[in-house]
């Protein structure tokens, strides 16, 4: 038995491995309902987090040769990330539960030593009411921090607040 290696910050210069095409999960010709997921990341004083690396993973639709299920987007000067992906469907939860459609999000940046993990759900999905994770969050205002909202044609917005008023719910992973 060994113990997992410690994390260290991704730092401000991770763009050396950036490839902007990785933010488009449909680039291999994925078929399905495409959407844009975008949002602004701000810090405890409301300033944009302009040097973040945001990574997305979704277990649905299942990854295959045309759909990687994973993407990476940097944030721009306004703190904005932007992914093009396919609309996820529901996935099984523990036991016989079902989880509402969602994507997983990692936030890595200077000043974040070990990744921050959260999820983006989609406002208006009937399954949100019964989602096992959302139901762990009693305060509706806190729950709303995980809910992407429609923001134009096939576009969903989820702003992420790292700290302070409206702080996003982060999940132990």
């Amino acid at each position: 038995m060994s113990i997992a290696t410690a994390a260290q910050t991704i730092g401000p210069f991770w763009h050396l491995i950036e490839d902007k095409s990785l933010a488009d999960l449909t680039r291999f010709g994925a078929q399905g309902k495409a959407l844009t997921l975008t949002g602004r990341i701000t810090d405890g004083e409301g300033n944009p987090v302009a040097d973040a690396c945001v990574e997305l993973w979704q277990a649905s639709p299942a990854a295959d040769a045309r759909f990687p299920g994973w993407g990476r987007s940097g944030t721009d000067a306004t703190g904005t990330f932007r992914f093009t992906t396919l609309k996820p469907g529901p996935v099984p939860g523990r036991g016989n539960t079902q989880q509402a459609p969602h994507v997983a999000i990692n936030i890595l940046a200077r000043g974040i030593i070990t990744r921050l993990y959260t999820r983006a759900y989609f406002q208006g999905e009937a399954l949100n009411e019964a989602d096992p994770l959302l139901n762990l969050i009693e305060d509706p205002a806190r729950r709303a921090t995980l809910m992407a909202r429609p923001d134009g044609p096939a576009t969903w917005r989820l702003d992420i607040r790292l700290q302070g008023d409206g702080e996003t719910v982060f999940i132990e992973v």
């Binding site: 810090d43 405890g44 004083e45 300033n47 987090v49 993973w57 979704q58 277990a59 996935v91 099984p92 939860g93 523990r94 989880q99 969602h102 997983a104 940046a109 200077r110 000043g111 974040i112 921050l116 999820r119 096992p132 994770l133 762990l136 969050i137 806190r142 790292l162 700290q163 302070g164 702080e167 996003t168 719910v169 982060f170 999940i171 132990e172 992973v173």
Partner: peptide, 17 residues
Amino acid sequence: RLRHPTRPLIAFPHTIT
């Protein structure tokens, strides 16, 4: 200083995600 969450993380057992 301004980039760490101040609220506790939600404990949630791993799922397929």
